[in-house]
Amino acid sequence: MIVFVSCIILFLIGLYAIVTKRNLIKIAIGFAFIEYAVNLLFALIGFKRGALAPIITQIDKPHNFVDPIPQALVLTAIVIALGTTALMLTVILRIYNRYKTFDIAEIRKLKG
């Protein structure tokens, strides 16, 4: 139980960074925190204590495997998170070239 709670705490740390920090890079790091928290939670859901890696070596023997589906899903989620992080850092770099600052308080041409 405590591992799940610490995943949620990691999620909340990331959310805190996104909401309160003024530096664009720190916001991107906050997103990395959230992504790790969700992926870790996903991988822990499929975990069983003392179970084997899910590779079938003998057909007719009953096996005690960890659940392989969350692992496959986490791989996909990591790839998506990579794409998002790369795009976000690219946009941050472009913003820096325009405004010469990483501070979101100084980047406010928009009204919304």
């Binding site: 997103f31 976000m88 941050i92 406010r108 041409k109």
Partner: peptide
């Protein structure tokens, strides 16, 4: 500048 800022804002909200 405006477009990048709007994109970043949209990205932060959308990714959460």
């Amino acid at each position: 500048g405006e477009e990048l800022e709007a994109s970043f804002k949209y990205m932060v909200m959308g990714e959460i």
